[in-house]
């Protein structure tokens, strides 16, 4: 397979002047390819991806290592691939996770959620990428949880300005 390599990466590892963003925390930080880990996260084509495969190869017996990465984009489940010299830097997205109690879910899959601080929001929706992906199942879980004096807890992942519900489970109330 031939990869069309267009690198947004900075070249050597020396310069660490990355964008710190406006929110105070960087959305992504550069890291040398060789130090990435399988199961970790990386930006491929500016998409926040989870690394599902990582291998090295070289061109010619006496050539230098290149890293092949296969990532699954967090927000779409799409597969992305990239290959780059192992000395190059790649951006690692900061994937934040936050838990909410489910107050309600409507038939379109929109949640009403409450944070540990008691604030509510209703802009997040159930998708196929969540551990429980059918609205009916969530409602059933909610009924079951209420009987046990528990609540349904969802975990939202956010990175690079996007956000998605990933995990749905029954647990103790957050507060």
């Amino acid at each position: 397979m031939k990869f069309n390599i267009q690198h947004p990466h900075t070249t050597m590892a020396d310069d660490h002047d990355f964008d710190t963003g406006t929110s105070g925390a960087a959305e992504s930080v550069p890291i040398q390819c060789s130090a990435l880990r399988k199961g970790g996260y990386v930006c491929i084509k500016q998409k926040a991806c989870k690394i599902v495969e990582m291998s090295t190869s070289k061109t010619g017996k006496h050539g230098h290592a290149k890293v092949h990465l296969v990532g699954i984009e967090i927000f779409t489940g799409k597969k992305f691939e990239d290959v780059c010299p192992s000395t190059h830097n790649m951006m690692v997205p900061n994937v934040l996770r936050k838990e909410y109690e489910v107050v309600d879910i409507d038939s379109d899959g929109f949640f009403t959620l409450m944070t540990i601080e008691g604030e509510t929001r209703d802009d997040l929706k159930l998708t196929d990428l969540a551990s429980v992906s059918r609205v009916d199942d969530v409602i059933a879980m909610k009924e079951k949880a209420e009987k046990e004096n528990n609540v349904v807890i969802v975990t939202a992942w956010s990175a690079m300005g996007d956000e998605i519900i990933k995990d749905v489970k029954i647990g103790k109330p957050l507060a």
Partner: peptide, 12 residues
Amino acid sequence: GRKTISKDVEDF
């Protein structure tokens, strides 16, 4: 309470 395993945490 995590009875179901989401697709991409499965291997984890």
